[in-house]
């Protein structure tokens, strides 16, 4: 059998709902400029920067009062980076669901 490419994989309905929920949360918690910064940061994470840099810059963007939003990023982190991401969450004192 031929392995599916990323573009061939569609996300499940429950995953779509989760994505919509997180998008709604971002819209209520981030200002317009912050949304643009987040968009840029996400694109850089997909194309060039490391997960380490992504985590540091995301934490700076969300700041202390919104760091719980980072836990909500779990379902969107590629599997290869999930272990680092979990360690980072633990290091900044974010656990459980966060959102």
């Amino acid at each position: 059998s031929v392995a599916k490419s990323e573009s061939d994989i569609s996300i499940t309905p429950s995953a779509q709902e989760l994505l919509q929920d997180y998008m709604s949360l971002l819209k209520t918690r981030l200002k317009t400029e912050e949304l643009k910064q987040f968009a840029l940061l996400l694109r850089q994470y997909r194309t060039s920067i490391s997960v380490r840099e992504f985590c540091i810059r995301l934490k700076d963007l969300y700041r202390e009062e919104r760091k719980f939003l980072m836990a909500g990023m779990r379902p969107f982190i590629p599997e290869k980076d999930s272990q680092y991401f979990e360690s980072f969450l633990e290091s900044i004192g974010v656990d459980g669901n966060g959102i």
């Binding site: 990323e6 994989i9 996300i11 994505l19 779990r74 379902p75 969107f76 982190i77 290869k80």
Partner: peptide, 10 residues
């Protein structure tokens, strides 16, 4: 980009 990451997520 979130959807793309989700497709690769555990």
């Amino acid at each position: 980009d979130l959807a793309a990451g989700m497709k690769q997520s555990a």
